[in-house]
Design a protein around this nucleic acid. Sequence first.
DNA 1: TAGATTGTTAATCGATTAACAATC
DNA 2: TAGATTGTTAATCGATTAACAATC
Lengths: 213, 213
Amino acid sequence: MIRRLPRYYRQLSELQEAGVVRISSSALGRSMGLTASQIRQDLFCFGEFGQQGYGYKVDSLKEEISEILGIHRGHTLVVLGTGNLGRAIIQNFRFSSNGFRLLAAFDISPAVVGTRIAGVPVYHTDELEPFLAQHPVSVGMLTVPISAAQEMGDRLVQAGVRGIWNFTNYEITFDRDDVVVESVHFSDSLLALSYMITQREQPARQREEEETL
Amino acid sequence: MIRRLPRYYRQLSELQEAGVVRISSSALGRSMGLTASQIRQDLFCFGEFGQQGYGYKVDSLKEEISEILGIHRGHTLVVLGTGNLGRAIIQNFRFSSNGFRLLAAFDISPAVVGTRIAGVPVYHTDELEPFLAQHPVSVGMLTVPISAAQEMGDRLVQAGVRGIWNFTNYEITFDRDDVVVESVHFSDSLLALSYMITQREQPARQREEEETL
DNA sequence: TAGATTGTTAATCGATTAACAATC
DNA sequence: TAGATTGTTAATCGATTAACAATC
């Protein structure tokens, strides 16, 4: 369910840009591949956002959802690791549209320490703890080599960060249950795709196997 | 379920590297945060991979799963868009470990067309159709600007590609049901994290609200 | 044989869908 | 008022968990 909230938010933003003022659960469902029932159930569980006989107001529904997602809470973020991927995300990702302020990046390479990437200052990793002591940070983004992932995660948590956005292909874990980890595993995603196209490639054999059961 | 297969594969690879030869469903479950029952159910539905009284052989289980995921099928891939993100993934991601061969990248910028990124040739997007006519391609990876996403997706599908790995923040869709789309939405991921840390931040208020129900 | 652990069915749980009364 | 559409409960479905017989 909570995985659908960001999609609602995205869809509503698009509708808003397209100038749509109101939408019914059935129309929203059609555009997102969900049933009207599911959408009403989802939205109902957070409060009564619709109007009977009318539908949902796009503006106010989007606002409600952004509230639930915590978009206006002034969340902050630091990036650990400014290799290709870290740099790409710093340069491309619209942190502010998602309610995050990117405060700083950290790396160990003398080539980047002291520079700025898209306006974001890059400090040496040694500066991490002093920095975190001065600035409250909600989320640490990990784009370090896999070998450094757990150590950097531990340092972030030790210094008070409670959200970890993990881009390494390592299943990072923390003992404490007040730390939240969200991982982006490219590898898992591509393998899921690999599985799906493999199924498509041989529907005949599959059917055959099913028959023998 | 299929979303768990890549995780099994990853976990088994790690166990293999650590020299572990056999593992029981309960041990595997413990290390992955799943119940033993769930693991046996998952693995059973694809075939009888274990041995009663013994457990699962890490090597052969990994092999079975890689077969199911289609890792040895010689899947191929092209990249559309060599901006920061496309470049970063071309340079960092171990396509071959996931059973994919990256054949080429496409872009419109004269600055990159004709060059190579990590050994991968970059062609002009105009060359896409001729290239696809010559090389069978399983998956097209989209790291183009959001405005070009649907058009590039359509061109890939038109030219016979049936798997789309979408990195744009656009909910790409295709009419035909033989096309498989797998999206990596950074934005959805960060918003889910935002939601989770927001919940953690105010458990008190939450409890209060629950009481009033 | 005894112990361990899977294969496999049944029970439980949660999420999705259906239905319709409430109401705009 | 009539039509539309949500709020909300009940029914259905699928996925997870529990249990234990089979067997290594």
